[in-house]
């Protein structure tokens, strides 16, 4: 156990070294990922977009600001590697660079973990702003994982960011909360733009008019869309394994997240067509499965 931290510190020093040797002064983009409502997939989105951006060759750092309820480390499979947290940085028990945990697979990806034993007041808006400013110099993207709610935790997470991704699902409560968050983001001068990410879309239910469609949600919230992620059972297994689903090339949700990352970088990627087979055979199949009493 004791040898562990040293290893990480060494690997971290290596990253710094490469950055310094290039002599680049980067100015990264700080994106906060927020939703208002809990359980809509903020953290999953963060882990996947971060991993996808890193796979695309960008230097990415993820900041978990959900103090007391940290989970981003689990989704990335890094829970055993955390030595220092953001609170340690703020309270000057370590340097910022020491607290960055490098991803297992991708050297471009780092995590600044939240403290599990403290509450939201342990870090202030100003301190988070400073951390983001410092990280901007060394990374292309700083993704801030925001806690649920609209209280101090949200205010902290948003403080250092200039862009936002609002995660929501096609459910009434999630859309309502997203609307509230959008209202709050619009009132913030620092947030230059925000985009909507619609998570857990179930094309089958949309088709039978049992679930709100992507268009419905976009119209109601009148916000720009950055991604549509289909409901995918693979998310459960990927969370269990601590392996973001973007690493699974076969998964549709993984592909959707990779597309989101490409859009963030600036590529023009068309949205996935989630409508399943609308061919004649598809309809015939559906009709017969209906006859067999599988539907309704």
């Amino acid at each position: 156990m004791l040898s562990y931290p040293q290893k990480i510190l060494d690997s971290l020093n290596k990253i710094n070294y490469t950055t310094n040797i290039k002599g680049e002064t980067m100015s990264g983009r700080v994106i906060v990922i927020t939703s208002g409502k809990g359980g809509v997939g903020k953290t999953t989105t963060n882990a996947n977009i971060g991993t996808a951006l890193a796979r695309a060759g960008k230097k990415v750092v993820m900041i978990d600001t959900d103090l007391g309820l940290r989970n981003l480390d689990l989704l990335l499979g890094l829970e055993n590697r955390i030595v220092y947290t953001i609170v340690d940085v703020v309270e000057e028990r370590c340097k910022l660079k020491q607290a960055l945990v490098k991803d297992k697979k991708n050297p471009n990806l780092c995590l600044l973990a939240a403290a599990q034993t403290r509450d939201k007041s342990a870090v202030t808006e100003e301190q988070l702003k400073d951390i983001c400013e410092t990280l901007k110099k060394d990374f292309d993207f700083i993704l801030v994982d925001c806690p649920a709610g609209i209280e101090q935790g949200f205010q902290n997470a948003v403080a250092g960011a200039s862009e936002a991704i609002v995660v929501t699902t096609p459910e009434m409560s999630a859309v309502r909360d997203a609307d509230r968050i959008i209202g709050l983001l619009e009132a913030k001068e620092e947030i230059k733009s925000y985009k909507l990410l619609l998570n857990r879309v179930r094309p089958n239910l949309v088709k039978t008019n049992d679930m709100m469609s992507v268009d419905d949600v976009v119209e109601i919230l009148s916000a720009d869309l950055i991604g549509i992620i289909p409901e995918d059972t693979g998310i459960i297994t990927s969370t269990n394994k601590g392996e973001p689903i973007v690493n699974d090339d076969k998964s549709l949700a993984g592909k959707a997240y990779r597309n989101v990352a490409r859009r963030i970088i600036g590529e023009d990627v068309p949205f996935l067509n989630l409508e399943e087979d609308t061919s004649v055979m598809g309809k015939v199949k559906k009709f017969f499965s209906g006859l067999m009493g599988k539907e309704k």
Partner: peptide, 19 residues
């Protein structure tokens, strides 16, 4: 009468009040 339309209409009303 679909669930989707009910949801949309209810949401619109609620959001009006919220906003």
């Amino acid at each position: 009468t679909s669930a989707k339309d009910v949801a949309c209409n209810r949401l619109r009303v609620v959001l009006m009040q919220d906003r």
